[in-house]
Amino acid sequence: MDNFFNKIVELFTTPEYIDSLLHGFLLTMQIAFFAIIIGLILGTIIALIDTAPKSKWMILPKFICKIYTTIIRGTPMALQLFIMFFVIFAIRGFPQIIIAILAFGFNSAAYVAEVIRSGIQSVDSGQTEAGLALGLSRSTIFRKIVAPQAIKNIIPALGNEIITVIKETAIVSMVGLYDLNMAAKDIGSGQNMASYIVPMFTAALFYLAVVYLITFIIKRVEKQLRKSDRRG
């Protein structure tokens, strides 16, 4: 037990270790943040194409979106990361962090698209009919009626997706990026520390703190959006 506490003291008093953890944490957050942004934008576009009324102009875009989400959701994230690193971006000197951001962003987009699509489709069709019967345009109906109701269904699931991306970025250590997960392993396997338990638990706490914070924010937003459901 003494040894355990000594290791904790050692970890938090060695500037080198703290530096490694913070650098790793920063890289994890950078990849996750930009990947989530790409995922949200691309995923929203895919969802809008997917839920748009059927017409001859939409056949091809809808088909492409279907194939995209099927492939992304049907193959392992780790394999997608490898393909991005060793096949598509096998270019010497191309910034690795950008490849990682794109890999996670493209992956997340497929899941975000599903979340948004099912959120939109879960809005009762009577709501759209009410707008149509009053002579409102499709775009007004979407902005004023469907989207505000869909968001209530979408936000909780989107929170889950954000959390998933943050945790999943840990696999970038497989292609040699120095993220939080990698930093913990690196410190633990070093000559001086020579123990995994403290650095890895510390990394776990970092992840947990971020996930907890996001869960908290999502809950607040949900509560705000629920206002119109209240009875009385």
């Binding site: 009762d124 009577g126 709501q127 009919e129 009410a130 707008g131 149509l132 019967a133 009053l134 002579g135 409102l136 345009s137 004023k144 009626i145 505000p148 109701q149 119109s228 459901d229």
Partner: peptide, 19 residues
Amino acid sequence: QKMRQKIGMVFQHFNLINN
């Protein structure tokens, strides 16, 4: 769209806009 402004409709399930 213009025609619907002149032809009102009341539905079985009311369809008041929930939000």
